[in-house]
């Protein structure tokens, strides 16, 4: 079986307790259990993490980059959502 025929798994590593898992890359594997072992061997050889998540890539539903304007509205027309929008006297500006 060619490597490409194996499922792709996305790998997420928690570098330390208390932190979010972060996406670090992907790999091919024949099962989730094996993906976990490959991820261990490939991505945490230098104590980069304390916990690994693997998720089959096809299980990820992603937004389309091209839709960003209509789908992920950056709300740039709503500057009042930012703390810096409010001008306060200097004495209390550290609020």
């Amino acid at each position: 079986m060619k490597q490409e025929q194996l499922a792709v798994y996305e790998v997420f590593i928690r570098s330390n307790r208390g932190l979010d898992h972060k996406h670090v890359g992907s790999l091919h594997a024949e099962s989730a259990e094996h993906a976990l072992m490959y991820a261990r061997d490939c991505y945490i050889r230098r104590s980069e993490g304390v916990s690994i998540w693997v998720v089959e890539s096809t299980n990820i539903t992603a937004s389309e980059e091209g839709d960003v304007e209509s789908f992920v509205d950056p709300m740039d027309d709503k500057p009042y959502r930012h703390a810096t929008h409010y001008v306060l006297p200097d004495q209390v500006d550290n609020m």
Binding site: G18, Y80, A83, H85, L88, M95
Partner: peptide, 27 residues
């Protein structure tokens, strides 16, 4: 508790606007 701590970080980032808009209105 990790998930609580991370939720607090996220929430604190958004709170500053809340307090400042209130103070601005009071001012």
């Amino acid at each position: 508790y990790g998930p609580y701590a991370r939720a607090m970080v996220r929430i604190c980032k958004e709170e500053s606007f809340h307090q400042r808009q209130g103070y601005e209105a009071m001012y």
